[in-house]
């Protein structure tokens, strides 16, 4: 009875667009969903540093090196905001990392694809950050206060990333024959993985309904995917690139692009851990974490010594 009343009050707050804060009562399932979603989001920012870091040492100009370095640093910052937001739900960062390393927590599957040429850095900024923005702009209105505020901060930086990525594509598309081919090849490889970022179709999405009702999500996977496709196709065509989808066409009456069948077998295969980079990404993160253990222990030992000196003084 107690719980039913609380639940009712909780839903009333959500319906009135009042943010839920860490100390407020919340249903256990709401908390668990957020823990899963925010930590997955944080891990994505952090694992996403790897495919881009792969080209940091090979960026072809000082300017592009600076932009890429700053971008990767932004992503690390996004990871931090999000871990902090997730920690307000009562779980420590160490625990989130443990779940990641054990394979219990996921991160965005798109980062399991390899970055093979410099054009991939353009394609990631343009498409992957571009898709992320669509999702994150929507999440600014999420019902959990700390998550919503993290999204507001992050969105401002993401739009820079998208523009900078597109700028690389523009330069390549207007460049030499080889550069143009590089850009087209990158679009061919990143297009489908980026539209898969929005997750399964609404009809097949396990968590969607409850999440929409609790306003954890504000728009459905398919709605967000459509927004992304609508704004991106024009940008690509504008610079003379073509999309690897023969069924992609403008539908005048609906005012949207129609697109072909998404290869969900591939999607689920990569989610399950069998993508080209899953093993590599996870091993890299684990190795760095393990190699850094003596540093973290050293810092903790020093902090303890400091505290005990302060106490006795």
């Amino acid at each position: 009875m107690e719980n039913a009343k609380k639940l009712e009050a909780f839903q009333a707050k959500i319906d009135a667009d009042i943010k839920i804060e860490p100390k407020d009562w919340m249903p256990e399932k709401y908390r668990r969903t957020l823990i899963r979603q925010i930590s997955q989001h944080a891990h994505s920012e952090v694992i996403g540093m790897q495919p881009e870091g792969n080209w940091l040492t090979r960026a072809p100009s000082l300017r592009s090196k600076k932009i890429l370095m700053a971008k990767i640093q932004d992503e690390a910052g996004h990871g931090l905001y999000l871990y902090c937001a997730a920690e307000t739900l009562g779980i420590k960062r160490e625990q989130f990392l443990e779940w990641l390393h054990e394979g219990k927590a996921k991160y965005s599957s798109v980062f399991n694809y390899p970055t093979l040429t410099w054009a991939d850095i353009g394609a990631i900024g343009w498409l992957v950050d571009g898709a992320a923005i669509v999702n994150q702009v929507s999440l600014q209105g999420t019902s959990y206060g700390p998550y919503s505020r993290a999204m507001v901060k992050i969105c401002m930086e993401e739009s820079f990333h998208q523009r900078q990525g597109y700028e690389i594509m523009v330069t390549l598309a207007n460049g030499t024959k080889e550069q143009k081919e590089m850009a087209q090849d990158a679009l061919n490889r990143w297009w489908w993985p980026s539209i898969m970022m929005f997750g399964p179709h609404d009809a097949d999405s396990a968590h969607s309904n409850q999440s929409l009702k609790w306003k954890i999500k504000r728009e459905s996977n398919d709605e967000l995917r459509q927004k992304f496709i609508d704004k991106t196709v024009e940008q690509g065509e504008h610079i003379g690139l073509s999309f690897p989808d023969p069924d992609l066409k403008w539908n005048k009456s609906s005012g949207h692009y129609e697109y072909g069948k998404i290869n969900w077998n591939e999607f689920w295969n990569v989610v399950k851990g069998y993508g080209p980079g899953n093993k590599k990404r996870l091993a890299h993160h684990k190795d760095a974490h393990e190699e850094g253990s003596w540093v973290r222990q050293g810092a903790i030992a020093y902090a303890k010594k400091k505290r005990s000196i302060q106490k006795t003084a």
Binding site: T57, Q73, G77, V295
Partner: peptide, 17 residues
């Protein structure tokens, strides 16, 4: 730049970058 994503923790990744 080569050290990117290899720091002992995320704060340090940010700082060194």
């Amino acid at each position: 730049g080569e050290y990117c994503s290899k720091a002992p923790h995320l704060e340090e990744d940010l700082a060194i970058t």
